[in-house]
Design a protein around this nucleic acid. Structure first.
Lengths: 352, 352
DNA sequence: GCAAAAATTGGTAACGTTCCCAAAACGGCA
DNA sequence: TGCCGTTTTGGGAACGTTACCAATTTTTGC
């Protein structure tokens, strides 16, 4: 009668069934040594019989930690972020915590609202790709936070995990150079993007190391979409006297657009034009030829984020910034060139 | 001294600050009418001053519901499931609940463990794409469940949301017919797959409706991957006397493979061979030509799943099976054919 | 056989919230 | 002024767990 209905049994139900007090049940459940063998047996039998499962809510309330972690990313439907989420999920599962995932849609208000929800749910901490420009929302978050993604640079006072863009760009340039492409045309984002500045800085250094005048590199702009990449490449190919043999795009979508443009211009890839992308999106595997690209370690970012956060939660709060290496994923869009265009290094006057 | 440290304030802290009892604070917070205007003001002022935020754990424990919903899918990194998750997320956010997302990796043990975690977290219900063949794990889940995906058919006694494959296949066949393709070659999964049977049944009906002998259709098998789709298409094109003008693939990956094969065989798409896919994966938008496909309503599935679950949670537990319409996403891989191959309907003896 | 030590057990408070009931304050009215 | 009805308030108890302390039982040593 007291246990009418089929609600989940509590330790009190177990205590009644086993004929002991709830304290004893708690001890049996927690594996405490302060309990007799006989009692433990009877409790565990009752637990199995009634199908008891600990109420995580009550436990969390008492213990002051929930074992839940928040993950706020721009869009779970975006392959890159989905991959990050997957990494975080695996790492979280490994240490027994679960993930509360939210998509901010690059909207500051939504991000703030999600952070509030996370705080109210009393998560132990959160991993966030911040969209808000002001640190306020995050600074006042009041819980351990780890930032992910490149935008984390704007908040140097918080721990973060990101991919090493500079290393990735250098890796790409070195690989291109090893194939004889010393002066790839560049498909970059719009000038006000932070990523573009970073990208160019590495290119600059690379050029100096190879005795090339950075000013002679051809550069076109896009908006990180297939269409803009295609249009930009078409503009590139139409430049007079420009024998484009290699294109290095700042993201895979633009690289895919470049591929389309090259074919539309009657050229072949990789035969006449080599194309290198940046990101490692799944769609790059299905193009023809497959897109060779610098792959960001998306899954590792999620994984490492959880690791860092776990440390922060355990009080081991050493502020850290982790940069993970990008890797080269070779598919078919790159070919060796015979004409070593490094010889152009002494010729001045290329446009842009 | 009592409120030392900077832990989150509770209603008791607010009560002290406002000089009232915790009951009064609770009333002010819940918008109860049984409270004086003066007290309400003082409470709300204190709330703002101390930055109080309700402890969702304690509330859930008391209220008996958490406002949390579980989502168990095979892989959050898979674009289709990520899209489903996004739909669920949006719908959940709309009614103020949050999502606990887990990836089962098509592994029954992992699925069971995730369901256990959800039960312990006392979620209000769960949306699951079941991998386990036995209904046991789900039947004993003990909480409201909504199944998603086609495998839900194996559990007719539970509510579910899926895409209407039959309608989608019919839609594709009708569209192909409207372009003059009455006898598309079929790229299907292996014979033991349930999906294949369903697919074929619709094709059969369609053929009868158009006076075509289903036995004359060319069919090849693949494993739902790009490579197997390519290989299968190559086999198709090598058949003697087979003038393949149209291919209908059971999923987009195989369709993408078909595209590669067609080009490799020196043919053009859609000029000489039209290709129709099924799924609506993002990569289909980036191929050349873009892949025309039957798109599953992934986001709507997640959305509708939450709606159904919400009803079930509110006790309105009418068992239901919702089938959502697939849509036709037109890109560039289909062309009208002049030769109406319907005329072949009287000729018997095509292989397979 | 008895005291002391050790092992085992039960009772109670606490985590932060909400709900119910009773107490207090306030107003109007005779 | 006293009584009654209404509004406003405070004091528990409860949700299910864990932790502490005290009480009980058992074991050990002499």
């Amino acid at each position: 009668m007291s246990n009418s209905g089929n609600r989940q049994p509590t330790i009190i139900d177990i205590a009644k069934a086993a004929g002991v007090s709830k304290s004893t049940v708690a001890r049996a459940l927690s594996g405490s040594p302060h309990i007799g063998e006989a009692s433990r047996e009877r409790v565990l039998t009752a637990v199995r019989a009634l199908g008891y499962e600990r109420n995580h809510l009550a436990h969390s309330l008492r213990a002051g930690r929930t074992g839940m972690i928040g993950l706020v990313i721009p869009d779970i439907a975006n392959p890159f972020w989905a991959e990050v989420a997957r990494g975080a999920q695996d790492a979280a599962a490994a240490n027994g915590s679960s993930l509360l995932i939210f998509s901010s849609d690059w909207d500051a208000a939504r991000e703030a609202s999600h952070l509030r929800a996370l705080r109210q749910a009393r998560v132990d901490g959160a991993i966030v790709n911040p969209v808000a420009d002001n640190v306020d929302g995050l600074g006042r978050f009041g819980l351990p936070v780890v930032l992910i993604g490149s935008s984390a640079e704007r908040f140097p006072e918080l721990s973060s995990v990101g991919s090493d863009i500079a290393q990735g760009v250098a890796l790409g340039l070195d690989h291109l150079a090893s194939l004889g492409h010393f002066r790839p045309a560049l498909l970059l984002g719009s000038p006000n993007r932070l990523a573009r500045v970073r990208f160019l800085r590495v290119v600059h250094d690379h050029c100096l190391a190879h005795d090339i005048d950075p000013a002679t590199l051809m550069i076109e702009e896009g908006e990180y979409t297939v269409e803009s990449g295609k249009a930009a490449t078409l503009r590139l190919l139409e430049r007079e006297g420009a024998a484009v043999r290699c294109i290095f795009a700042a993201n895979d979508l633009m690289a895919l657009g470049a591929l389309l443009a090259v074919r539309e211009a009657g050229l072949t890839c990789p035969g006449e034009v080599s194309i290198l992308g940046f990101d490692g999106i799944p769609a790059g595997a299905f193009s023809d030829p497959g897109l060779t690209t610098i792959e960001k370690p998306a899954r590792s970012i999620g994984l490492e984020g959880i690791k860092l956060l776990a440390e922060a939660i355990d009080g081991n709060l050493d502020h850290r910034r982790v940069l993970l290496e990008c890797t080269l994923t070779m598919r078919g869009s790159l070919a060796r060139t015979e004409k070593d265009n490094r010889s152009a290094r002494l010729v001045a006057g290329g446009r842009n």
